[in-house]
Structures are given as structure tokens and as C-alpha cells.
């Protein structure tokens, strides 16, 4: 070529952060606690893995304080897989986030599944080079997190239960909020922003486009291929599966089936094939059996 012209690199821009979230669409992100699990997840077709010390179902059993994972365990997982590796920090714990960034994880989940470190403030995610994902239950919460710099949103559901009802509720609420503001006259949007506790500029954007400015995934309670397909129908662009895989009878098979279900969520015949003979699903806890104080989704401000 005669005219080679190029600029210098601009690393970790907003577009590269949201871009990675775009690349994960139509995929499944799986919780793993060991390099062996990570390999099983990758072989099953996971688009990314979430490295953590205990899956949410075990965090519930163990009780106590749930914190960021041991760096050694995260590094071990990074070594065995080529797909993106995510890890969780506690809400508001920006030093855990700094440590995860130093480990060069590909995404940080500032997660309600861990015990919050701050009862009022979340991490200022804009100052980090690594992208963040955060949970939400409605549009206001989603836009507050995006305002703080989250490049991906996931509806929270109720992690570690295997009960899909909360994931459905949060996704429907989010979609409903977006449909509602789409139809409002502009002069009402400032009051909506105030009521939802969301940044006005982002409310304006959602009112114009009808969707979130970043990809919107679903989490918390997915235990079967049908659950994953249900969330895709309701507007999830990808699905996080935590305890649902490695708390089931045959993790490799179930993981593979959930990956297939996200691709073919709109094809009931295929879903019937996919759902055959998967062995025991996780036992789970019905949401009505759970005490209010044991629910994780209420964490986040």
C-alpha cells in the first residue's frame, strides 16, 4: 500500500467496553468456581465465565460475609480458558475492583450476590479501564448504574434459588418502564427522572430509542433451557447462569443445553429436543420460602 496512515491507539474507550458486551449477546455466561468447571463451561459453549469462590446457592448455605474471590483462583481460571473471564466485587468496594482490574479480568460484576461493602454508594465505574456489569430490578436502578459507568446491565432475579419468578418480574418491570416513558410527552420526563431516581439525560435517551444504551442481560434463577429461552423472549440479550449448572445432576449436558436454548429460544420443537434427558435440575428454593432478609436482590441503591 502506498498511503499507510494510522492514528495512535485509544485503549479502554466507552465503545470498546460496550463493544465487549455486544460480543456476548446471544450467549450464556456461567458461574464457575474452579479451573475444571471453567473448562467444562467453555467446552459446553459458554460465551464467558464468572469466576467466584462459591456459587450463589452455596453462599446462601454458608452464610457469613461473601467477598471477592482469591486472585489465585481467578488467575487459574484465566489460564485454562480463552473466553472472557469475569469476576465479582462487593457493591461499593472499589479496592476489590482495583484488584480485579490489576488481574486483568475482562469484566467486573459489582454484585448483590456478595455482601455489600457500602450501604449508600456504588463504585465509580467511569474511572476504571475494565468494563462493569451491574444488576437492576427496574429502569431507574439500571440508569443509575449506567450513569456510574456500567457498560452492561443484567436484571437481578434472585440468585441461588433456581426460581425464575424474580428474574421475570425484574425483566418485565424494566421493559414496562421503557415502554411507558417511550409514550410520554417530553415535558413529563424530568419528573419521571426524579421519581425513578435516574439521570435525566439517560431518561431522554431511553424515551427516544425505547431501549437501554447498553446491552441488557438476565440473571438470577435460571435452572433449565426453558428458563433461559423464556428470558430471551422477555427481552434479555444473553443469560447468566449461576448455580443452575453446577448444582444440577449433569453440569456438562445442562450447560450445553442452555447454550442451545439461547440460540433457538424461538423454536419450540428444537427446545423440546434440547430439554430431553438432562438429569436432575438444581433442587432450588421457592421464592415464597425465602425470608425477606435472605433476599439478595434488595441490595443496591
Amino acid at each position: 500500500m502506498t498511503d499507510k496512515v494510522w492514528s495512535s491507539k485509544q485503549e479502554s474507550t466507552w465503545k470498546t467496553k460496550v463493544g465487549l458486551a455486544e460480543m456476548l449477546k446471544g450467549g450464556v455466561i456461567m458461574d464457575v468456581v474452579t479451573p475444571e468447571h471453567a473448562k467444562i463451561a467453555e467446552d459446553a459453549g459458554a460465551a464467558a465465565v464468572m469466576a467466584l469462590e462459591r456459587v450463589p446457592a452455596d453462599i446462601r448455605v454458608a452464610g457469613g460475609v461473601a467477598r471477592m474471590s482469591d486472585p489465585d483462583m481467578i488467575t487459574g481460571i484465566q489460564k485454562v480458558v480463552s473466553i472472557p473471564v469475569m469476576a465479582k466485587c462487593r457493591i461499593g468496594h472499589f479496592v476489590e475492583a482495583q484488584i480485579l482490574e490489576a488481574l486483568e479480568v475482562d469484566f467486573i460484576d459489582e454484585s448483590e450476590v456478595l455482601t455489600p461493602a457500602d450501604d449508600r454508594f456504588h463504585v465509580n465505574k467511569r474511572v476504571f479501564k475494565v468494563p462493569f456489569v451491574c444488576g437492576c430490578r427496574d429502569l431507574g436502578e439500571a440508569l443509575r448504574r449506567i450513569g456510574e459507568g456500567a457498560a452492561m446491565i443484567r436484571t437481578k432475579g434472585e440468585a441461588g434459588t433456581g426460581d425464575i419468578i424474580e428474574a421475570v418480574r425484574h425483566m418485565r418491570t424494566l421493559q414496562d418502564d421503557m415502554r411507558r416513558i417511550r409514550n410520554l410527552p417530553e415535558e413529563e420526563l424530568m419528573t419521571v427522572a426524579k421519581e425513578m431516581g435516574a439521570p435525566y439525560e439517560l431518561i431522554l435517551e431511553v424515551a427516544q430509542t425505547g431501549k437501554l444504551p447498553v446491552p441488557n442481560f438476565s440473571a438470577g434463577g435460571v435452572a433449565t433451557p426453558a428458563d433461559a429461552a423464556l428470558m430471551m423472549h422477555l427481552g434479555a440479550e444473553s443469560v447468566f447462569v449461576g448455580s443452575g449448572i453446577f448444582k444440577s445432576g449433569d453440569p456438562a449436558k445442562r450447560a450445553q443445553a442452555i447454550v442451545q436454548a439461547v440460540t433457538y429460544y424461538n423454536d419450540p420443537k428444537k427446545l423440546a429436543e434440547i430439554s430431553r434427558n438432562l438429569g436432575e435440575a438444581m433442587t432450588g428454593i421457592g421464592i415464597t420460602q425465602l425470608k425477606e432478609s435472605d433476599k439478595l436482590a434488595g441490595r443496591g441503591w
Binding site: K4, W6, S8, L20, S82, E101, D106
Partner: peptide
């Protein structure tokens, strides 16, 4: 993944043959 992990993901501008002199911005992600 030869351009590195997510932290090394980047944007940069360069020219492309046959579509005009105005450079395109390439977004490189892992």
C-alpha cells in the same frame, strides 16, 4: 486474542483502500 485481553482493547483510525481518503475508526476488542 493476539491484540490482548479486554484491558488492551482499543480504537484507532486508518485508511481503507477503495472507500475514500477519510480514515475509518476501527474498534478492536480482544
Amino acid at each position: 486474542n493476539a491484540y490482548g485481553r479486554q484491558l488492551e482493547s482499543f480504537e484507532a483510525a486508518f485508511t481503507v483502500k477503495g472507500i475514500g481518503e477519510e480514515p475509518v475508526t476501527g474498534i478492536f476488542i480482544r
